[in-house]
């Protein structure tokens, strides 16, 4: 039985999600989820995990939407939620379990822009501890300032600096054993 507009209105208890709320959120989500997914992928190194984290992040954002007074801060809120979700991955029991899938594992992401040094650097990023990796992604992918990274992660600027420094130190040390990272040692094209 089709409900009249009046009935539908009556059936929605007070405080239910408003259409404006949904439309507003949906618009933002459509525009920004690719950005979130890419950042999540770089933070985790796995597309399935990235999609799961972003879905959770969006759900939390959806719940908090009415309370986010300044829409200009939504991106910052989303970024912080994303980083928190990533850093709490280890708490999830399922993460430690083998996941059985119907299909073969996803193929490695290949792109014409992936040169040998990019692959090597990506492999290096994948070896970083979670917190250090988050700092690196926020600093060098999101291009945030040290202060902004500190704000997002809820840590001091000094910690951001030290985490970046350690990551770069590890990278520089790795260069000595990864000649493909040295431009002057690349094979001539």
């Amino acid at each position: 039985m089709a409900l009249s507009v009046q009935e539908v209105t009556l059936l929605v208890p007070s405080g239910s999600t408003s259409r404006e709320h949904d439309a507003d959120f949906s618009e933002w989500m459509t525009a920004r989820q690719s950005w979130l997914l890419r950042t999540a992928y770089l933070l985790t190194g796995d597309t399935h995990t990235a999609e799961d984290i972003v879905a959770t992040c969006l759900a939390k954002l959806y719940l908090a939407w009415p309370r986010i007074e300044s829409r200009g801060n939504v991106d910052a809120y989303a970024r912080r939620t994303l980083v928190n979700e990533t850093n709490s991955l280890w708490r999830r029991a399922w993460k430690r379990h083998e996941v059985i899938r119907e299909h073969l594992p996803e193929q490695p992401i290949h792109h014409e822009h992936h040169s040998g040094d990019h692959e090597a650097l990506w492999a290096f990023v994948n070896t970083l501890p979670t917190k250090q990796r988050s700092v690196v992604v926020l600093r060098y992918y999101e291009q945030l300032s040290e202060a902004e990274v500190a704000e997002v992660m809820g840590i001091s600027i000094g910690t951001v600096k030290s985490q970046c420094s350690r990551a770069l130190h590890t990278l520089r040390a790795g260069i000595h054993t990864r000649p493909e990272l040295l431009p002057q040692q690349r094979e001539p094209r």
């Binding site: 989500m29 690719s34 890419r38 290949h110 990019h118 650097l121 990506w122 990023v125 060098y140």
Partner: peptide
């Protein structure tokens, strides 16, 4: 690092949620 991460992120074409 910046170039490598940018390249990696650009290559990922996620399915919409």
């Amino acid at each position: 690092l910046s170039d490598a991460l940018g390249s990696r992120g650009k290559a990922y074409d996620p399915a919409p949620i």
